[in-house]
Amino acid sequence: MGTAGTTEVTGVVEVASEAELRELIGEPSSHAANKTRHRLHDLDRRWLARSPFCVMATADAQGRCDVSPKGDPAGFTHVLDDTTLVIPDRPGNKRLDGMVNILGNPQVGLNYFLPGRGDTLRINGRARLLRDAPFFDELTVKGNRPRLALLVAVEEVFYHCSKAFLRSELWNPETWQPDALPSRARIVKGVEAQDRALEELEQHYGPGYAEKLYG
């Protein structure tokens, strides 16, 4: 066996240093290497005003990672100034994995999507948890004033190109197969809540589910 939680795989050749990694892959172009900025540009503000979705990466004090989706109407990320963002928290499953991580390690990575676009806006920074602030009223959606929000001090900003989206054909409707796997209710029944009736879960995750998003 390998380290805890892993299985030993024979015949692998591991990369063990950055020098070895660079020898294998090479150096980035000057454009790629130097595109990082430390403040929001007007184009970044416009992107954030249109983006309804991002993924947030965090890690705890021991380096264990988590990635969490964040979504709301377009423009849900509130821009205070060129170096400060606010992301409201909404009702969820109350695990708070990313929030707990931030308490021990404030570094966050954010990747903002625009539906149909392959490029993404990446923002890295340091986050704090707020339980109230004068701008919380501006974060209200469908009557839901957040009880918690992230205040993010921007450290790095850059755009990522479309290659991953083009390779995956993520936005191509002809590749979409939402029924290729069991429904959300059946997945929950299979791996999360075996003791609950499938009919109950199907009702919970059925057509009325969207009406509960801000309750």
Rank of each mutant, 00 (worst) to 15 (best):
Arg90Lys: 15
Ile123Gln: 11
Arg122Glu: 10
Gly98Arg: 03
Thr120Trp: 01
Leu85Asp: 02
Asp119Lys: 00
Leu103Lys: 09
Lys94Trp: 06
Ile102His: 08
Ile123Ala: 10
Asn101Tyr: 07
Ile87Asp: 07
Asn101Pro: 07
Pro106Glu: 12
Arg117Asn: 06
Leu103Phe: 06
Arg95Asn: 10
Gly109Glu: 11
Arg126Lys: 15
Asp89Ile: 09
Pro91Asn: 07
Thr84Phe: 09
Leu121Thr: 06
Arg122His: 09
Leu114Pro: 02
Met99Asp: 09
Asn93Trp: 03
Gly109Asp: 10
Leu85Ser: 05
Asp97His: 13
Gly92Phe: 07
Thr120Gln: 07
Gly116Thr: 01
Ala127Trp: 07
Val108Leu: 08
Leu114Val: 01
Leu121Lys: 06
Gly104His: 09
Ala127Leu: 08
Leu110Ile: 07
Arg95Tyr: 08
Asn111Trp: 06
Met99Asn: 11
Arg95Phe: 10
Gly118Ala: 00
Tyr112Asn: 03
Asn93Val: 03
Leu85Gln: 05
Asn101Cys: 04
Leu85Val: 04
Leu96Lys: 15
Met99Cys: 11
Leu114Asn: 00
Asp89Met: 14
Arg117Lys: 12
Lys94Thr: 11
Lys94Pro: 04
Asn105Met: 09
Asn93Gln: 10
Met99Phe: 13
Gly104Pro: 06
Pro106Asp: 14
Asn124Arg: 13
Gly98Asn: 03
Gly104Arg: 04
Leu85Tyr: 04
Lys94Asn: 15
Gln107Ala: 15
Val86Ser: 12
Arg122Ala: 02
Arg122Cys: 03
Gly118His: 00
Gly118Asp: 00
Leu103Asp: 07
Gly116Gln: 02
Pro91Ile: 11
Ile123Thr: 08
Asn101Ser: 06
Pro115Asn: 09
Leu110Met: 11
Pro115Lys: 12
Phe113Trp: 01
Leu114Cys: 02
Gly92Val: 04
Ile123Val: 13
Asn124Leu: 08
Leu103Met: 14
Leu114Met: 01
Asn105Thr: 09
Ile102Val: 13
Ile102Asp: 10
Met99Gly: 08
Val86Tyr: 02
Phe113Cys: 05
Leu121Phe: 03
Thr120Met: 06
Asn105Pro: 08
Ile87Gly: 05
Pro106His: 10
Asn101Val: 02
Gly118Gln: 00
Pro88Gly: 05
Ala127Phe: 07
Pro115Gln: 09
Arg122Val: 05
Ile87Ser: 06
Gly116Met: 03
Pro106Gln: 11
Thr120Ala: 06
Asn124Tyr: 04
Pro106Thr: 13
Thr84His: 14
Gly118Glu: 00
Leu96Gln: 14
Asn111Val: 15
Leu103His: 06
Val108Glu: 12
Ile102Cys: 12
Asp89Leu: 11
Val86Thr: 10
Pro88Phe: 01
Asp97Ile: 12
Gly118Ser: 00
Arg126Met: 11
Arg122Pro: 06
Tyr112Ala: 03
Arg126Pro: 08
Ile87Gln: 10
Val108Arg: 07
Ile87Met: 13
Gly116Tyr: 02
Leu121Cys: 04
Leu85Met: 05
Thr120Phe: 02
Gly125Val: 00
Leu85Trp: 01
Leu103Trp: 02
Leu96Ile: 15
